[in-house]
Computed example of a mutant assay.
Amino acid sequence: MNSVRAFWLILTLLVAAPAWAFQSRVVTIPSAAMHESFDATVVLPDQYAQGNSAERFPVIYLLHGSGGDYTDWTANSHIGKLADRYHVILVMPDGGHESWYIDSPVNPRSRYETYVGTEVVAYVDAHFRTLATKEARAITGLSMGGFGALHIALDRPDEFGAAGSISGAVDPRGSEDEPGIEQVFGDPGRDAGFWNSEAIVENARGFGNAHIALTIDCGVNDSLVESNRTLHERLVELGVPHAYTERPGGHTWKYWANAVQYQVLFFAGAFRRAHVASHLADNPTSAAS
């Protein structure tokens, strides 16, 4: 290959290949509820640095699963490029190894629902150029994080306009054998009332009442698929609008890394339908359409 052809080939590849220029940061977010601070990963789209200082962005919160931490999503998926593609800020807080993102009735030191649903949101809105409205916030997660995302969205209908779950453990009553779960939920026999009240299927009507854009995704080979199907059927029975997807795959990062692309696309559509733009012009209190 002569030098001229080589030059044009390289130039063509450079033009054709997307240049992902997102920024990934680790921040430390204090929790007054737990008297402790935790790290979180924040991914900012390229437009955040390249745009003008008045530009503001929707935020998608991504929760990790059992045994994971704030680094899981960036370590195991190409999540960063989605920030550039959809002009959104991505926030991945630390939810503890087995917190289930609830305010535990048996462990007063485990208040991860308050932390993620209130304190992390407040910190992100205070330190980054966000569109600080319900319509410009979405939350999703995998496995334990899928339960956490739906649970937090249901309990805070004024905070999140969209919610999702990927391979979500949507019914903790089916996860009684999970190590550490009793330390936050209590004994499944003695505290059965609490376990029942926390099941997402028992609270499905809340999604319709809160007008939350909802998407649920689970692999057909996942051990949690039956509980996800039950939730889907309950939502259909109640007439609650939602997207439900099953694809080949199991409880693996290969599945989650693929599924999150569809969830972020869903949230981007929800932002557009809510007339949320990735900037504010001269009015920082309302989203431009």
Rank of each mutant, 00 (worst) to 15 (best):
F160E: 00
V184A: 05
V124N: 12
H151C: 03
A126Q: 14
R173Q: 14
P188F: 02
V170D: 00
G193C: 05
F160N: 02
I139F: 12
R111G: 00
A162W: 08
G161I: 11
R129L: 12
F194C: 09
G186M: 13
F185G: 02
E182T: 15
V124F: 09
I181C: 01
S110Y: 05
G145P: 12
V120M: 03
F194M: 06
A149D: 12
V121D: 14
D155H: 15
P188D: 08
A132L: 14
G189A: 04
G117F: 03
V120Y: 05
G180Q: 02
E135K: 14
G164Y: 02
S197P: 05
A149H: 10
D155P: 01
G117K: 01
H151E: 11
F147S: 03
R109A: 15
G180C: 07
A192K: 14
G146F: 06
G145D: 12
G180P: 03
I152F: 08
R156A: 15
G161H: 10
V184K: 01
I152Y: 02
G193M: 09
L142H: 06
E178S: 09
G180I: 01
G117E: 03
A132R: 14
G164F: 04
H127W: 13
A153N: 08
P157K: 02
P157Q: 11
D158A: 15
G148T: 02
G186N: 11
Y115V: 07
I166N: 03
M144Q: 00
T118H: 10
G193D: 13
A153M: 10
A122L: 07
D171P: 04
G193L: 03
E113M: 07
A126T: 14
Y112A: 09
G189E: 12
Y115L: 03
L154Y: 03
H127F: 05
G145C: 11
A136I: 15
A149Y: 03
V120N: 02
F128V: 09
G189Q: 05
D187T: 00
A162Y: 05
S143C: 10
P179A: 06
E182N: 15
F185C: 05
L142G: 06
I181M: 04
V116L: 11
D191V: 08
E182H: 15
G148Q: 04
T133S: 13
F147E: 01
D187I: 00
R156L: 14
S167T: 08
V120F: 12
I139W: 12
D155V: 03
S165P: 11
G186Q: 09
G189I: 10
S197M: 06
D158H: 15
F147T: 02
L131I: 15
D187E: 08
D191H: 13
I152D: 04
I152A: 01
P172G: 05
A122Y: 00
S110H: 06
A169V: 00
D158K: 15
T130E: 13
G168E: 08
D125E: 14
G174P: 00
P179E: 04
S143W: 04
S110Q: 14
Y112C: 05
A122R: 10
R111H: 09
V121Y: 07
T133Y: 08
G193I: 07
R173S: 09
A163P: 01
L131N: 10
A169T: 01
A132G: 13
A162N: 07
